[in-house]
Amino acid sequence: MLKYVILVGLGAAIGSVIRYLLTEIFNYCFCKFKIPFSTIIINVTGSFLLGLLTSNMVNNSICFLFLSSIIGGYTTFSTYMNETVQLSNEKIYISVFYYLITAVLGILAAFVGFYI
C-alpha cells in the first residue's frame, strides 16, 4: 500500500509542477483572452495521454501506474470548476462556454487517445 501511495504522490508532484510551469507559459501567450486556455489545453492533452496509455500499456505495471500518476497530477478538476465559478462572476456566457468546451473536448480527447 505504502509503495502505491508514494508512487501516486510522486507522480502527482511531478505532474503538478509541469502543470504550473505550462500555466505560466500559456498565460503569458494567451494573456489577451478571458478564457483560461491553459487549463483547457492541460486537461485535454492529459485526457488524451491517459487514453493512449490505458490502451497501450499493461494496466497493472509499475511503469503504467507511475506515468498515469503524473498525468493524474498534471490535470486538475478543481481548477476547472473554480475557474468556471470565477468566470461566472464576470461574464456568464464565457463561463458556460468554458464549462462545456472543457467537458466535451476532454472526453473526446480520452476517446481519441484510447481508440487511436
Binding site: 502527482a12 508532484a13 485526457s47 493524474g72 476547472y80 472543457t102 472526453i107
Partner: peptide, 12 residues
Amino acid sequence: IGGFTTFSTFSM
C-alpha cells in the same frame, strides 16, 4: 488541491 483532484481519470 490541484494534485488531489484529477480531470484525466474523470474523462478516462
